[in-house]
Design a protein around this nucleic acid. Structure first.
Lengths: 150, 150
DNA sequence: TGTCAATACTTGTATATACAATTAATGTTT
DNA sequence: AAACATTAATTGTATATACAAGTATTGACA
């Protein structure tokens, strides 16, 4: 459905760019709601899933907290507390780095890797397509979004 | 910068569609951070601004809470509490509807309208362009995002 | 008319985010 | 080596969100 209908907007947007900004925020909120449902059966949030993916990408090499922050989709979320949630569930472990005792090394555990594998098999179709969009279009939007952020 | 560089992703995305999902979430988070800064001098959050815009769009006709919810960018945010925040700052007023005492009519106040006018004059360039994106491209992405959500 | 369902909103609780302030360890400078 | 700056992470506080449960009012119908 067109954005204007979905948010029941009577007046036109002042520009195509303003509509684009709202459209990105709206579509993101829509995707996020889908992701919450997607990960709920596994007891984690989308951000926690994101952190686990980041750690799997680096495993078996650990990452420090600031590495995780810089790789996260939402840069402003609090890596310390997210990682602590994951640790309490046994999906990651933390170790104070010996060579630089300011930093904390985070590693995904076997249990964490198993969780990701489980999620992947149950969601293997996710992200392989979007209804109504061709691969060419997806590429074009990806390029445009990259340019939009400068 | 390309998404892969920004989130320091070493492995390729499994599909262009998966990258698109992440790109939308990432770009949305980037936009949201900009908006927080944009509205901070005026003492409101992006969602509160959104609610005020919705109410201005309907003024002088009031809207009930569920109308506001259905028009909001983030459908899951809590309209009751957002409106209460705005009421405490004097930007909206609430009245229990006489003909149906279950519903609450919300109207933007003069102070709320003045605030929006103030924000508009200080941000009049915002939303008129995105660096590196033409109007044609913005239109194409808007169409594609609308289709992506089915 | 009394009971039940539907509507509209509110509240409680857990979690998450924004941002500033704080702590601790390491580097740098003189 | 002492003082200061920088880096890395943690904590505190206010606000926001997700979701379920609750309240009050109205509508439906047997």
């Amino acid at each position: 459905m067109r954005l204007e209908e979905e948010i029941k907007q009577s007046k036109k947007f002042s520009s195509e760019f303003e509509k684009l900004a709202v459209n990105i925020l709206y579509t993101s909120s829509w995707l996020e709601a889908q992701n919450i449902q997607r990960f709920k059966p596994f007891g984690i949030s989308p951000q926690q899933y994101n952190v686990l993916r980041i750690l799997r990408g680096s495993a078996p090499k650990p990452l420090m907290l600031s590495d995780i922050s810089s790789r996260m989709i939402d840069k402003n979320s609090n890596a310390t507390r997210l990682v602590e949630k994951l640790r309490l569930k046994g999906f990651v472990k933390r170790e104070v780095c010996e060579s630089n005792r300011r930093q904390v090394d985070i590693i995904i555990t076997k249990k964490g890797l198993d969780l990701l594998a489980d999620i992947d098999t149950h969601n293997d179709s996710w992200g392989q397509s979007f209804k109504g969009l061709t691969k060419i279009e997806a590429e074009a939007i990806n390029d445009a979004l990259d340019r939009l952020r400068e």
